[in-house]
């Protein structure tokens, strides 16, 4: 038996190809199930990972065309942190604006909902971005908010 228990972490690299976001999302679902999250929260985590990955696919313009996903389970097995990283051009997170359906219907601007959904479904969301990449760090606890729109 090891004196020090291995860290409960996993890493995955996916290509920026449509539907491969499901590989990252299903891996997140498996890890969340191992941690003991209820199905409702697993569904929220899965959808959040999909949104973070397709954001990277659509907007990063990275040269390596890869998304790097890291899953970190807390020692107490009560929290899952997922980092989604691209090596793209980055953006200024403070310029993100909250979309609304009225704009979508009136102005034809139907995109831009990904981060808003992630913020609703995860407990904490932090975005770090610079000229050579973006990382979205999202965390969910087993005993956390169930979403603001429940």
């Amino acid at each position: 038996m090891n004196l020090r228990e291995a860290k409960k972490e996993a890493e995955l690299v996916i290509p920026m190809i449509s539907n491969w976001e499901l590989v990252a999302a299903e891996t997140a679902a498996v890890v969340a199930a191992l941690v003991g999250f209820p199905q409702k929260q697993i569904d929220e985590i899965r959808l959040s990972v999909v949104e973070a990955c397709i954001n990277a696919f659509e907007h990063s313009a990275s040269d390596d065309n890869k998304v790097y996903v890291k899953y970190i389970v807390s020692e107490q097995m009560d929290r899952l942190c997922i980092l989604i990283t691209d090596h793209g051009k980055g953006f200024r997170p403070e310029t993100l604006r909250t979309p609304n359906i009225e704009d979508s219907i009136r102005c034809g601007r139907k995109r831009g909902w990904g981060i808003e959904l992630i913020r609703n479904f995860m407990d904490e969301v932090n975005i770090k971005s610079c000229g050579h990449g973006t990382t979205i760090m999202m965390t969910k606890s087993k005993v956390g908010k169930e979403g603001t729109d429940a």
Binding site: D43, L47, N100, I101, E116, N120, F121, D149
Partner: peptide, 17 residues
């Protein structure tokens, strides 16, 4: 719809229309 999908509809405002 699954619960998470119904909530996604509500967040995105589809349920207004």
């Amino acid at each position: 719809p699954r619960d998470v999908i119904a909530r996604t509809f509500r967040i995105m405002g589809l349920t207004q229309f």
